[in-house]
Design a protein around this nucleic acid. Structure first.
Length: 481
RNA sequence: GUAGAUAUAGCUCAGCUGGUUAGAGCGUCGGAUUGUGAUUCCGAAGGUCGUGGGUUCGAGCCCCAUUAUUUACCCCA
């Protein structure tokens, strides 16, 4: 057998001990926040039946699904006719016969499936959080992986806007907690929570687009406003077959200042709402758009009731669209302004996700943190706490076989006191043992050689300061504990 | 799916208009009177220059192909 260079699939990563420790630090903050807001944990299988996944994420999404080949003779149901590709549909025809399972693409759809399957036993409104990896057969690039973790919190069974407001609170709490480690303002995550409403978007759509069949196309282009500008948006809309009529309204609807200064989010809501009333070209624009604005204003009101202090981090953005087609109400996204990275979190309300599984009329709302992107942001800002990588706190040096035996009860006592400890597993030069401790980031080395043994004491060295102390065992425990 | 960039030691990268035996830093290992890391000093190991072909007296360097990685677009956490 020839030697092969080992490799891992593109877009996947190994996580070494230091990285896992820092990822766990992020997971911990998110988990504690979710639990504090009353969400309970849920886990679902890595594999879902493809019938559950397909059709939920749009055509693009279907293409990005990882399909799992059936076990055994996976060709047994494929006929020669199936493979005839004159119509270009052979793949579509054959696929369901080759693969009936796929890797989960997000956590929201499996959650919806779970809710439908367990509707009889769940207590509604049902609040769950879920922290698991998802897979997308995307092309990897900066901040984009084929395997990454999502941290979802969703509630189904209520359409109360309290949930939307609490999503904003949870987003702030997680990011503010991460920012507590910052030693300077520059290290902090400068974030903007963008919020919009699908109906506000549709109001704009009715106002500015004549072609009614391409709603999602319109949103995709509109979402790019901050990248390509108002004129760019108009240009691209034209390229995608939208007519010029109505584009004039875009200029008004997308204004961000009142002529003198930038509007606040709430001023902008009032302004956009007033515009909806004025646009008479399509009477649908006003009722639909105003309904969305009204809900957004209510979310802001609830937040004010909470004594929410961070409205400068919460921005009403009428162009925010988000790709996932199942959103129907409020939509959210978090952008980190001082790191070049796609959104680290997103979410929204979906009125009929469970409908696809035969349970209509259940409204849900939720959001998700992308831990891997958050990690990359923290890394770039150097925002991880120092201790996050350490595992062992104290290494006991190993002088020789006899001393090793004598150190076993010491090791046991340290661990019993809750101190993460290890004994170097073989007698070796002290230099080597110290090097090991240093390389692993261990804070203390405990020594008992012949000299200390004679006095029944220990020498404890702090590797960060280089200082040594001669102590009795209870004193060692007290120092490390 | 579209477009670009890169590929040289375990890692990060130099390597001039093509010219003898391929370079550095970090890391690893060994040593500086056998009980001390990170810091200092000395030394050593480690590369068929991604792969295959071509041009040339001569290719790490130029050309073609191929694979891998990566960035941007699309879309997204």
């Amino acid at each position: 057998m020839s030697i092969q260079k080992p490799s891992i699939p593109k877009g996947t990563r190994d996580f070494g001990p230091a990285v896992v420790a820092r990822r766990n630090y992020i997971f911990g903050i998110i988990r504690r926040t979710f639990e504090k807001f009353g969400y309970a944990p849920l886990e679902t299988p890595t594999l879902e039946n493809l019938s559950v996944l397909t059709g939920k994420y749009g055509d693009e999404g279907d293409q990005l699904l990882f399909k799992v080949l059936n076990s055994g003779d996976f060709l047994k149901d494929v006929t020669a006719d199936d493979l005839q590709n004159d119509d270009g549909r052979a793949t579509r025809r054959v696929l369901p016969k080759l693969a009936e399972k796929g890797l989960r693409y997000d956590l929201t759809v499996p959650f919806a499936r779970y809710v439908v399957m367990n509707r009889g036993t769940l207590v509604f409104p049902f609040k769950r959080y879920q922290i698991q990896p998802v897979w997308r057969a995307d092309r990897p690039q900066r901040g984009r992986y084929r395997e990454f973790y999502q941290c979802d919190a969703d509630v189904v069974g209520t359409d109360s806007l309290l949930c939307e407001a609490e999503i904003v609170l949870m987003m702030c709490e997680v990011l503010d907690t991460l920012n507590k480690e910052a030693k300077s303002e520059d290290q902090k995550l400068k974030y903007t929570i963008k919020i919009n409403h699908r109906d506000a978007l549709r109001g704009i759509f009715f106002a500015a687009a004549e072609n009614r069949s391409k709603e999602s196309d319109f949103f995709v282009v509109l979402d790019k406003l901050d990248k390509i500008g108002t004129e760019g948006v108009k240009q691209e809309l034209k390229e995608r077959g939208f007519s010029n009529n109505g584009f004039q309204w875009l200029t008004y609807l997308l204004r961000t200042d009142d002529g003198n200064r930038k509007m606040t989010s709430e001023e902008r809501m009032i302004y956009v709402n007033a515009m909806f009333k004025e646009i008479m070209s399509d009477p649908n624009a006003e009722p639909v758009g105003s309904k969305g604005i009204k809900q957004l204003q209510e979310v802001f009101n609830i937040l004010r009731g909470f004594d929410f202090k961070q409205f400068q981090n919460l921005e009403f953005d009428p162009t925010l669209a988000r790709g996932l087609s199942y959103y129907t109400g409020c939509i959210f996204e978090i952008k980190i302004n001082n790191v070049n990275m796609g959104s680290v979190s997103g979410g929204g309300r979906y009125d009929n996700l469970t409908g696809a599984f035969g349970l209509p009329g259940v409204s849900g709302v939720g959001f998700s943190f992308g831990v891997d992107r958050l990690y990359d942001c923290l890394e770039e800002l150097n925002l991880f706490p120092e201790g996050a990588a350490a595992t062992t706190r104290c290494l006991i040096a190993n002088f020789d076989a006899a001393a090793m035996t004598a150190m076993l009860p010491v090791l046991r006592d340290l661990r019993a006191a809750g101190i993460a400890s290890e004994l170097y597993p073989e007698p070796a030069k002290l230099a080597k043992q110290f090097k090991y401790a240093d390389g692993k980031g261990i804070a203390y080395v405990l020594l008992q050689g012949p000299e200390e043994l004679a006095l029944n004491t220990f020498k404890l060295k702090d590797l960060r300061t280089g200082q040594e102390q001669t102590l009795t065992l209870p004193e060692v425990v007290a120092t490390l504990g």
